[in-house]
Design a binder for these strands. Structure first.
Lengths: 205, 205, 205, 205
DNA sequence: AATGAATGAGAATTCATTCAT
DNA sequence: TATGAATGAATTCTCATTCAT
């Protein structure tokens, strides 16, 4: 009984195992060469289990991880603390988080980019989620600090979305196509300056 | 008249037909959902013909188009004319070309991004080709104009590679993930300013 | 009753069905004209099932049958009983077994001969297995009977390998190229005498 | 004109080129992995040329080479000279020729063995040709020497066919499955003794 | 829930063969 | 005669998905 128990996982552990295995394999061999059968084999669970949790297979894994990770990323930010900073420092913190997150979850991000090419619904959900996410963020920030009240709510959201896309575009290229700088520090410093410049540019228009 | 010539022309026509059909389909339904059978059917040629020209199928199509398009892009630039401009104007011309090229060949670029995930050789060839390409460009430019002699050859190449990656990263995101601006003109203007800023930043380091 | 057991039995039944169907078809239409699709169709199972059990298709079927049949052939021989005989009688028993086995499994033997032409690894495995097989046999025989102690272990193994090859060469030609004799009895008698002669010849060298 | 002439081959040269290339490839990669396209590519001629000379492709190449080589083997033997020998010496000469021929044309022999598995007509032609061949030989020999008159014509033919098969069986196994002896000389000596023994055995029955 | 054997549509690739030049 | 582009049926192999246990 006891020895059996050891190997019993609860639901969330199984799901996380599937996530981890999937993204690990994507990183190793790309999204479209990673099959549900591979995931099952590599995670040492059965294909049936994957389909129990993700009835539509690979697409579902990405979809659900996308939902969860966006939410988690949002929740993980202590907005109240960030709001104390000036805008520049806030931006720096934010892009550092994005960088870390992207680097640690590169498998997922590669999979996601592949998936949205053929999954229009996911593509749309992504767009919607981002606006939704930054709407919340902006509302919170504006409640907490005057630093964010120079701009209308809508405009501030657009700024965030713009910055988010900008940083993601460059991050993704850096991590999956060709590196911009040899070290993370140089890269982050450039990103920070680029963000500041772009913020200024954007606000002028 | 020249029976040999006609043959050759047909050959290139067929190759171009395969390119066009493939990238058109990639744009419509993503790289990994576009099969060689689809290409053949859509182009109204037989599968065998595709494999006559591209023995390793999809990977070969991308590889060869990559080689050809990089070369064509290089050849198509009248460097002598560009060299007359100051650096800022040169950059503007260059990124406008990149933008047009990327927009017109989005199918290819999507396919290329997917392909390098699983084709390490293509990934490496890409890196090498870019440095090779800008090496040539820089040498030509430095012969033609004093505007490009403030920097060492090596440094100038690095600047170009950096700018090329930067613009590509943003272009690709804009065209395939989420738009930065609603109109092309706004986007180009931003890109131009971003490039100028980044050039300055890069040269300071 | 034992749900696990039943599963396992079905598994082996399916594997045997694939073996039988494959070798039946090889006998009818040669190795290289027998496709995995033919096997599936003829056995009324799906292609997927074949690849579940034999991930590398035809080559795997041969490889695995080769391993199993060599082992089975070894196990099936009651060495202790054979050891009681004198060498001549032992040889006669042995070649009679080989004859029966070859005749009953001609489809396999034809497939095997074709397969080793293009599968170097199988070719090598075959060589190695034969020496391994006769090493075991010789050790057992020498433990059980003094009849086999006139020769060194190594030399005895070589004799067996030699005889095995000799008999196989002639058997295979007889069954697949052109018959040496009209009846099995005549053929077996010739083989027996040939073996005795060759044994004597071999021991003299 | 002159430089062109250099590359013009006559019919027989082309045919020989096809034979050589085909059997070279069979030796390297087996019969069923050698396609007409491979042959054309390797021989640097066009597929069309192969089909000009061999309208039914691979099967035709084997068939025609089979016919020609059997005839050539027959013609190449100076029967009058062989007839002067006693039977034992005759046999030795004969099997030495077979050995050399088989070794030099192993590619062909491998291809032939594969081909007869699926080409019943070739299988039958082979049987017929062998009897036809030895009928001729025997008639010639009996005209030239008394050494061959102890046996009836029919019986003598059967002896030859038997010996021919025996030697071929062992030769083929030695060259394509597993070697009987480490050196050619040892092997030939064994073959010679085996032939003598078998001749005696056969004549007794 | 979890398993994994089984499925079969479909993707990648090969190859004998034809035919216009 | 020689060529080789073009064909498409056939082959190997993969993979998402189902379902009985």
């Amino acid at each position: 009984m006891d020895s059996k128990k050891k190997f019993v996982r609860n639901k969330q552990e199984k799901i996380d195992l599937i996530y981890d295995t999937f993204f690990k394999l994507v990183l190793k061999q790309s999204y479209h060469k990673t099959s549900t059968n591979h995931i099952a084999e590599s995670a040492r669970i059965s294909i049936g289990t994957i389909y129990n949790y993700f009835p539509r297979g690979k697409e579902d894994i990405i979809r659900k991880y996308f939902e969860e990770s966006m939410t988690a990323f949002f929740v993980s930010h202590d907005v109240s603390k960030m709001a104390e900073n000036n805008v520049r420092d806030f931006l720096d913190d934010f892009l550092l988080d994005l960088f870390r997150n992207h680097k640690e979850n590169l498998g997922y991000h590669l999979a996601f980019r592949s998936a949205i090419q053929s999954d229009k619904a996911l593509f749309d959900a992504h767009q919607e989620k981002i606006f939704h996410f930054f709407n919340h963020l902006v509302r919170k920030l504006r409640k907490l600090s005057d630093n964010f009240k120079q701009l209308s709510e809508r405009r501030l959201v657009n700024v965030f979305v713009f910055m988010y896309n900008l940083v993601n575009a460059i991050l993704h290229h850096h991590l999956s196509v060709m590196e911009f700088f040899d070290t993370d520090d140089e890269f982050i410093d450039y990103l920070s300056n680029l963000a500041a410049f772009s913020l200024e540019y954007y606000l002028k228009t």
